[in-house]
Nucleic acid binder design. Structure first.
Lengths: 108, 108
DNA sequence: GTGCGGCGCTACATTTACTGTAGCAGCATG
DNA sequence: CATGCTGCTACAGTAAATGTAGCGCCGCAC
């Protein structure tokens, strides 16, 4: 049973505007990365940890709980995977991939 | 003169893939928010602070240095503003706005 | 059944990051 | 020279992330 994670008015966002809440959620360490790493396949928590440069399991678990709470991921039979909503989210920032390539070429 | 901010291999990203570096940079506190708040007009550092729920100037300054280093923002005559590259970045995640609205309606 | 080896998840001490308040120097305007 | 703004910094306190270890659980081979 997932531990009770209360919503706890997202950190640093007292405005109440949804985009702020989202920006704040995604602005936590490893959060974007987790969604990114789940783009193709479901990953077990340990595989996800490996994919995220061996990030500490403590914070990874916290992010997984938060993302689950937000409805972006779910724990299925083959590990964590994006929900339809989570996939939608991923697609909104998939263009970042191409942008990042251009960016790194520009800054060296 | 901007204080010397060494690149310091972006935190938590030892992979070297540009998208990871970008995801990591954007995953720092207030980073996405700053870019977001600069979407329309240039803002002075103090106006930006006000826009960001009075975030502490220490970390705000750190993010501004990093974003400047990355070439996304620049300090002009009327405050901080997005560079063309920064505007490009903003546009890649502008769809988040609409997504956030749908998301908040879905989760209540 | 007993011992793997994997799973999701947690404890805890240490280190790092962020907060909040205060205040600096610089540059205009009066 | 005083006022008021700017970008930026110091510093003590608090919150978050790291790193290492290990829990209980389940399926499977022996």
């Amino acid at each position: 049973m997932p531990k009770d994670v209360q919503p706890r008015r997202v950190r640093g966002s007292r405005s109440g505007r949804p985009v702020m809440a989202l920006l704040d959620l995604l602005g936590r360490r490893w959060c974007l990365r987790i969604v990114w790493e789940l783009r193709d396949d479901a990953l077990t928590s340990r595989a996800l940890r490996a994919a995220c440069d061996e990030a500490s399991p403590t914070v990874l678990q916290a992010r997984l709980d938060e993302l689950r709470e937000a409805g972006f991921i779910v724990l299925g039979d083959s590990g964590y995977e994006l929900t339809p909503l989570g996939r939608e989210l991923l697609e909104t920032f998939l263009p970042l991939h191409r942008f990042a390539e251009r960016w790194s070429r520009q800054t060296g």
